[in-house]
């Protein structure tokens, strides 16, 4: 069955685009900062998938190496982001984006 359905790179690229869209829409509509944070991670991993697919299609190792850089950046982002979220949580005991509204105008 699977042999008939030959998987061309476009399947992975479309999956990557879908995941990226889910991540960006999620970031815009969800109100819990932790979930928004997860959406960013989803976006980064969708990009990773795209890089790997292209690297495979182009037969070029460069795209796969970039994934390692992305992973490191994502890890650093987790450290900084969670620190900020915890600092806010300590002060107000919740991290809903709608309640964080001191700055406006």
């Amino acid at each position: 069955m699977l042999a008939i359905l030959s998987l061309t790179p476009s399947y992975y690229l479309v999956l990557g685009a879908l995941l990226f869209t889910i991540g960006s829409v999620g970031l815009l509509v969800r109100r819990n900062t932790l979930v928004m944070f997860m959406c960013i991670e989803l976006m980064l991993n969708a990009v990773n998938l795209t890089f790997v697919t292209y690297a495979n299609a182009l037969n070029d190792i460069g795209g796969q190496v970039i994934v390692f850089f992305t992973l490191v950046v994502a890890a650093a982002e987790v450290a900084v982001g969670l620190a900020i979220i915890i600092a806010i949580f300590r002060r107000r005991q919740n991290v809903t984006a709608d309640d964080i509204d001191l700055l406006k105008g």
Binding site: A46, F51, Y54, G62, G63
Partner: peptide, 13 residues
């Protein structure tokens, strides 16, 4: 940054 990186991926492709 994630949007930028996706742009990099597409240009790489």
């Amino acid at each position: 940054s994630a949007v930028f990186l996706y742009g990099v991926a597409l240009i790489y492709g």
